[in-house]
Design a binder for these strands. Structure first.
Lengths: 132, 132
DNA sequence: CCATAAATAATAATTATTATTAATATTAGA
DNA sequence: TCTAATATTAATAATAATTATTATTTATGG
C-alpha cells in the first residue's frame, strides 16, 4: 500500500514536459525547471521522470545520441532525428499496424510494442547546408 | 592522406564481432577478445569500434538499455529486444520500403535511414514464465 | 634497416545515471 | 486541528559507460 504522495517538484516536471514539443533530456528539463525551482536536485528530476515512466504517464526513449529523452505524448508514434543538430521531431503518420504482425512470423516470443526512428537532415539544417 | 595502419587488435575485434550472432556491447566484446589478447585495452576496443562504424564496416545502435550495441551485419534489418533478459535478435523480415516514403510526407528534411525495434518477451523467457 | 606516423596500453577525466542519507513536506487518522 | 507516519527532497557519493591524454610500441614507406 505504497501511497503516492504529492510533490510540487514532480508536478512541475510534468507540466514542464507537457509544455515542450521537443523531447528533452533529464538535464535539459532540469535546466528549465530550475527557473522556477532554483534548488531542485538533478536526482529528483531523474527519480521522478523514471517514476512517471513506470506509472505510464510519460515515455522514455534513446535515439542513439547517448542520453535518454522524455516524451509527454504516450500514444504510439514515430520520431525523426536530425543527424546534424540532433533535433527530434514527431512524425504524425499513424503507426504501421501490420509491422508487428509481419515481424511476429519471424520470432519466437511475444511482441508488445515497437519503435521507429527515422534519421536524416532536418529542414532547418538543409537551409544552412553551406555550413557543412 | 591519412593512411589506416593495420593492427591485429582491430582485426581481432572485427573477426570476433563477425563470429557472434548476438549484438554485444563494447565491454562484452572486450571480455571475449581478452581470451586471445589478454592485455588489450578497453579504450582500444572503443576506439576501433567507433572507427569501424565511421568506415561503415559495422553498425552501432542503442535499444534503450543504456549501452551501445554493435552489429557486424550492416544491411538494413530490424531487431527484437526481450524486455526480460535483454537479448537482442535479428528479425529477418525485409525492411518496409514504403515506411520512409510514408514518413517523408510528414517532415521537412531528408530521410536517410530508419531503424525499427520490437519489444516483448522472447521465446526462452516465455518458457520460464513461472519465474516472473 | 630506419625514420616516422599511427596505434597501443595504461590511466585519468567526463558524462549520464543511480543510490544513500539526513532533513523536510505531505497526508491519514486521532 | 494536531501529530505521527512516511513519502519526498536536496545534497552528495557512487557507479557505469565512454572519451581523452600520454608515454611507449609497432607497422610501413623510403
Amino acid at each position: 500500500m505504497k501511497t503516492l504522495k504529492y510533490s510540487r517538484q514532480r508536478e512541475s516536471i510534468k507540466t514542464c514536459l507537457m509544455g515542450r514539443k521537443d523531447h528533452p533530456t533529464a538535464d535539459a528539463l532540469y535546466t528549465s525547471i530550475r527557473e522556477q525551482f532554483p534548488n531542485i536536485s538533478l536526482g529528483t528530476v531523474y527519480r521522478n521522470l523514471n517514476l512517471l515512466v513506470e506509472l505510464g504517464e510519460i515515455r522514455k526513449f534513446s535515439c542513439g545520441d547517448g542520453t535518454d529523452h522524455f516524451d509527454y505524448d504516450t500514444s504510439p508514434h514515430y520520431h525523426f532525428v536530425c543527424r546534424h543538430c540532433g533535433k527530434i521531431t514527431d512524425v504524425p503518420m499513424n503507426a504501421a499496424a501490420d509491422l508487428e504482425d509481419d515481424a511476429s512470423h519471424f520470432i519466437e516470443g511475444n511482441i508488445e510494442s515497437h519503435t521507429v526512428f527515422f534519421y536524416g537532415c532536418c529542414g532547418d539544417c538543409l537551409k544552412n547546408q553551406t555550413l557543412y
